[in-house]
Nucleic acid binder design. Structure first.
Lengths: 208, 208
DNA sequence: AATTAGATTAAACGCATGTTTAAATCATGC
DNA sequence: GCATGATTTAAACATGCGTTTAATCTAATT
């Protein structure tokens, strides 16, 4: 009755909690295995290396998130008029789906994504590009259609600014939420941050 | 004739180059002292610790940047109409002043700033807040005046999104510039990135 | 020229990391 | 119920880090 969850799952659960709280580099395998209640060596036994573990943690979310996002993009594509803000709003559906993995899945995934890009995780970028590059290119094509007034260079940079704003909001997220809470005396949820983010990035992208 | 530059300056120069390229945590004192051509122990002799060295590297730029920014804000304040984009454009003057420290000063400073926020450099945030908090509060007040349609919460989040976009653009800067170059077949300077950034953040901030 | 305070040096310290080893334990199929 | 392969375990390994030590060198002062 002690161990109903496999060692792999125990490691993944502990790792995603710590990774999303402190970042990949800041989290040691000793922390993870202690939190998971398993032996230190079992990470390398089951996953091969820390890098592979990081990838496995991300994959658990990406394989759910990406197909649902692609589905949303295809729906959007069939509409006559393509509005920027509506495109971004469609991210909320694949995000919500992540509760299947974990009740806090959406928050965790966004923070992991943030760390993946703010720390230099070359192997993660490569992995994402290889596995889900098509979805991201699809998104880019639709954003171009919604903003025909922007040239290639403007679009390129603004997309990266958007990524930066989103990533930063998540990585600094918990600290910021706490500041916001003490400043405004009301409860702030991670969901609220996205609702704040969407009009900002839409406005920034559309700007002439 | 061998050593015309003091050991301190040699360390600062090597450190800022490596810090701005790879980040604070990713750069070891052994790398820095080797690059500077000085002994490993001299960092701790002259600066006391790695943390203090990081602070010294930042300070060299901040003591120039911040007063000139404050000067610009005061000029802006005297104008009848306060436009968001014009406020952000005024950042270009204090930035340009940083060529006094180093020909590449503006680029280096922005990248350092990016790492300072994306890595968890609590002591740096505290230092900046203590030494230059007044200037930043001044900026906030002017942005509020230029955007009276935004409430406190919107302003709070959008400022952090802006910070994220700026920081991310700098930290991922070199990699992004290289991608942009290969994609558009034209030379991209760090200055161009700022010119791209200003309309984006202005549009995002002003959005209803 | 001797003294002395400051600067530089090579070496070691203590600690934390990811990884590997080899033995012990467990579980499963015959 | 035993043999076998998969898993778990404690311990050690190799490496890199920031920091400290104590000896040596340098240069200015008396």
């Amino acid at each position: 009755m002690a161990a109903r969850i496999s060692t792999q799952k125990k490691i993944l659960n502990a790792a995603e909690m710590l990774f999303s709280r402190d970042g990949f580099e800041q989290t040691s395998l000793r922390q993870i295995t202690q939190e998971a209640g398993v032996n230190l060596a079992s990470v390398n036994y089951h996953f091969g290396s820390k890098k592979a573990l990081i990838q496995a943690v991300m994959a658990r979310y990406l394989v759910i998130f990406m197909p649902v996002l692609e589905e949303q993009l295809q729906q959007a594509e069939q509409q006559s008029e393509l509005k920027t803000e509506e495109l971004f709003k469609r991210f909320k559906i694949p995000l919500a789906k992540l509760t299947e993995v974990n009740k806090q899945g959406p928050d965790i995934f966004l923070r992991l994504l943030g760390f993946a890009y703010s720390e230099i995780q070359g192997h993660l970028r490569k992995y994402t590009q290889q596995e889900f590059g098509g979805v991201l290119q699809h998104l880019l094509a639709l954003l171009k259609r919604a903003n025909p007034h922007l040239d290639e260079q403007q679009m390129f940079w603004r997309l990266h600014f958007i990524l930066g704003a989103a990533v930063f909001a998540q990585v600094s997220g918990q600290a910021l939420i706490e500041i916001a809470q003490s400043e405004f005396n009301e409860k702030v949820e991670a969901q609220d941050v996205i609702d704040q983010l969407i009009p900002f990035v839409s406005g920034g992208l559309e700007e002439a």
